[in-house]
């Protein structure tokens, strides 16, 4: 995983969110505009330029108790405003494993 520090150098190429894992249980969460975390991608704050991304990431990193390992992740925003993950990794983080039922019986 790219560290937040390294990501500060990255210019975002399109709409992005900040995602992390919630500290107490590890589930995938997204930073919201209300300066909190949500497990629902549709509630994520969207950033569209590097300055916005840096600010959202800095604020997320500061909330070390709430979630860990925050980083900027690309998303796609549909004409209807619906937010979808921007790559396979984030798709898997959002919707879960792609291997069907993990259990054997």
């Amino acid at each position: 995983m790219t560290s937040p520090l390294e990501q500060k150098k990255i210019k975002i190429a399109g709409p992005s969110v900040v995602t992390a894992n919630r500290t107490w249980d590890g589930i995938v969460v997204y930073r919201t505009a209300a300066k909190s975390w949500s497990a629902d991608l549709s509630e994520a704050a969207i950033v569209r330029n590097s300055d916005e991304a840096k600010a959202l990431l800095a604020e997320s990193v500061a909330d070390d108790v709430g979630a860990i390992g925050p980083y900027i992740a690309p998303v796609q925003v549909g004409a209807d405003g619906k937010i979808e993950p921007g790559n396979l990794r984030e798709q898997i983080r959002r919707t879960g494993v792609t291997i069907g039922q993990s259990a054997q019986v």
Partner: peptide, 15 residues
């Protein structure tokens, strides 16, 4: 470092 010494990683979906 403390969690790693106890076998706890952070993965995509959870610890």
């Amino acid at each position: 470092i403390l969690r790693l010494q106890n076998g706890v990683y952070l993965q995509l979906h959870a610890y």
